[in-house]
Design a protein around this nucleic acid. Structure first.
Lengths: 336, 336
DNA sequence: GTGAAAGCGCTAACAC
DNA sequence: GTGTTAGCGCTTTCAC
C-alpha cells in the first residue's frame, strides 16, 4: 500500500481535488456537509497531504531549523525542549543542526537551508562565529532568524538572552562576600557576546571592591576536556592560586571538581566554585554546586514564540530587540 | 533578493534546465566543460535547488525523523548527537520529535510524517507504547524504521539495543557481592522491553543467590519527580528497608540522593546505589555514583548507519535483527 | 551531449 | 459552493 493522493481521494469521494484541498484548509467557501464528507474520506482512506507538494506550491514549509553548537548540554537540551513543545503545538516541524562550535559547519548548514526548506531559524551561534555574512544570506532570502543565548549582536532581529553581565556581577559579588580575595574567571570564546558580558560583570565587581589588578585572572579554556584539565591544574598549582572560581560554562564543572580532587584542594574550604549551569545534578554533587541557573526552557519557548508569531503574520522583518530573561543565582555548599 | 530558480540560472548560462539538473546530479551524460560552467554559475548566482520541488519529483526527501520521548536526558541527547553527526556527513536532514512519553503524541507524530516528509525514522518508543499499529502504518507507506534502546519487539526491523538483561544481572551481582541482602529495583514502564529485561536480570541474580522472595522488591516509579519522591520516602522509611537500589533510569538518581539526604540515610554505608545512567557528573556526585553506562552515542550512530545504508540501497525492508552494544558497569563510591 | 516536455501532488485564481 | 486549470521548481524520459 502506497500513498493515496488528493486525486485518488477525489475520485473515490466524487468531488474535485480543489474541493478537498479547500475543505482541508477549512475554507469558508465549502459547505459543512461537504467538509464532513471529505473529512470522513480522509479518515477512511488514511489520506495525508504530501508536504513537499504543498510547500512547493505555498512557498512555506511549516518547518523551522534550530541551529546550535551542541545538544549534550543541559542548557541546549532544555532550550530545545522549549522550542519543540511550542512547535508541536502549532503544527510546525523542527529540523535540528549541530555546529559543534565550528564556524565552517555553521556556514554550510545555513547555506543548506536557505532555499525553501525552512520558514525560519532559531539559532545560538558557535564560539568561533565572528562574522555574519552567512546570516545575512539567509535574511536576503527572507528567512527570519531569532537568536537565543548566543546572539549575533550586529544582526537586526529579536535576541532572547539572559542577564549575563548582571548575573556574573552578582556571582562575583557573592564570592567576594564569602571572603574570596582572588577570583578566577574561566572563559571560553573570545567572540561570544555572552562570554564577554560575563567577563565584564566579573571585572566590574572586582573593580568596585577595589581588588587589585594582579588578582584579576581571566583564564582561557577550550572545548577540549583534556586541555582544560591541564590549564586548571596549572592554575591551581601556582603559589598564588585563586580562592574562588567562576566558570562561564557548565562543561567545566567536572574538570574543576576532578582537578581539585587530584590536587587535594577542598571545595569550598580552599576554593569556592560557581558555574553557569543548568545541571539538575547540581544539588547532589560533592559538594553541592552553586550555580547561575539560566532559564533555558523559557528562553527556548520565548525565542520560538517570537519566531512563530512573525511567521504567522508573514511579518518577516522581526523587530530588533533584546528580550532579557533573568538567571538565578542558586547558592549551595560549593560557596559556603 | 529572492531565490534564484533553475530556470533563471539556465537563462543566464544559456543552457537548458535539464542540463543544469543533470550537471548538479553529476550525470555522466554531461561533458566536463559544461559541468564546470554550471558549477561556476551556481557559485556566482548562489543557486541552491529547492528541496521541495526536488523531493516531490524524486519521491525522496533526504530527511529522516528521530522520534524520542525526551531530550533533556543524557542518554537521548548523546544518542541524538550520534545520529546527527552521521546524518550531517551524508547530507541528510534530521527532524526531531519528542513524545514526552505519550503514546497519543507518538501516534500523531508518526501520522504526520508518513507522507513524503521523511525517508526513514529512528525511534525509541514512549513508555506508554504497547501496540504498534501506528508503526505498521508507517511501514505500509514504505518508510523504514530502525529502533534504538526502547524497541518495539514485534516490528520486524533492525533494533539497536544494549545488553539490558546482562548488565542488570551484573549490577545486581555487584550489589550482592558488596553484601546487600535486600535490593530494590526501581522500574518505570511496564510496557518497555528494556525495563522488563532489566527487571528479569535483577530477579535472576537474586534467585541464583537464593535471596528469598520477600526480599525481591520491584518498585513502580513514574515520570513525575514529586510522586517518585513520595514513593521512595515510603520505601526507605519502612522497617525492613532495602540496603541496595538499582534504578532503571537516570532521572531517579537525584530523587534517591535527595530522599536519602532528607532521611539521613548514608550512601553507601546504609544504602548502596546503582543507576542506569550516562550522567557525566556521576564521578563528582556525593558520593560518586556507580552506573551502568550505556553506549548512547554509539547506539545512535549504529542505528543511523543501518537506516542510511538501507535508504541508499533503496532496500526498504530492513533485516529483522538485534544489534547489541554492551553497557559498562562503572564502579564508584556509591557501592563501596 | 544537450534540450523539450511531461508530470510529481498540491493550491489558488478564476469560471461557472 | 464546487470544478477547471495553470503552475510551484524540479527530475526524467525521450528526441535529436
Amino acid at each position: 500500500m502506497g500513498d493515496i493522493t488528493i486525486k485518488e481521494l477525489a475520485q473515490k469521494l466524487n468531488v474535485s481535488i480543489a474541493t478537498i484541498s479547500k475543505a482541508l484548509n477549512d475554507s469558508h467557501e465549502i459547505s459543512a456537509a461537504t467538509k464532513e464528507k471529505v473529512l470522513a474520506g480522509v479518515r477512511k482512506y488514511n489520506y495525508t497531504p504530501n508536504p513537499n507538494a504543498s510547500s512547493l506550491r505555498k512557498k512555506r514549509s511549516n518547518t523551522i531549523a534550530i541551529v546550535i553548537p551542541e545538544v549534550a548540554d543541559s542548557f541546549f537540551s532544555q532550550a530545545l525542549k522549549g522550542i519543540e513543545s511550542i512547535a508541536q503545538n502549532l503544527g510546525y516541524h523542527v529540523l535540528i543542526y549541530l555546529t559543534y562550535e565550528s564556524f565552517y559547519k555553521e556556514r554550510l548548514i545555513l547555506n543548506d537551508i536557505k532555499n525553501g526548506r525552512v520558514d525560519g531559524v532559531l539559532m545560538s551561534i558557535s564560539s568561533e562565529t565572528s562574522n555574519s555574512l552567512h546570516i545575512k544570506a539567509l535574511r536576503d532570502r527572507n528567512i527570519p532568524i531569532v537568536f537565543f543565548d548566543r546572539v549575533m549582536e550586529e544582526t537586526e532581529t529579536a535576541k532572547v538572552v539572559t542577564d549575563d553581565y548582571q548575573s556574573s556581577y552578582k556571582a562575583t559579588q557573592h564570592l567576594l562576600e564569602r571572603g574570596c580575595q582572588h577570583i578566577a574567571y574561566l572563559s571560553t570564546s573570545k567572540h561570544l557576546m555572552i562570554s564577554n558580558e560575563r567577563k565584564d560583570g566579573y571585572l566590574q565587581a572586582l573593580k568596585e571592591h577595589h581588588i587589585k589588578a594582579s588578582k584579576h585572572t581571566v583564564v582561557q579554556c577550550s572545548n577540549h576536556a583534556e586541555y582544560n584539565f591541564t590549564v586548571l591544574q596549572k592554575l591551581l598549582q601556582q603559589e598564588d592560586r585563586p580562592d574562588g572560581i567562576i566558570a562561564s560554562i557548565e562543561r567545566l564543572t567536572s574538570t574543576i571538581y576532578l582537578v581539585c580532587k587530584e590536587l587535594g584542594i577542598a571545595i569550598p574550604g580552599q576554593l569556592k566554585v560557581i558555574t553557569f549551569s543548568n545541571l539538575d545534578t547540581a544539588p547532589i554533587l560533592s559538594p553541592s554546586l552553586t550555580t547561575v541557573s539560566q532559564p533555558a526552557f523559557e528562553m527556548g519557548r520565548t525565542a520560538a514564540s517570537i519566531l512563530f508569531k512573525a511567521l504567522q503574520k508573514k511579518k518577516l522583518n522581526i523587530k530588533n530587540e533584546k528580550i532579557v530573561i533573568p538567571s538565578v543565582l542558586v547558592k549551595r555548599e560549593s560557596t559556603n
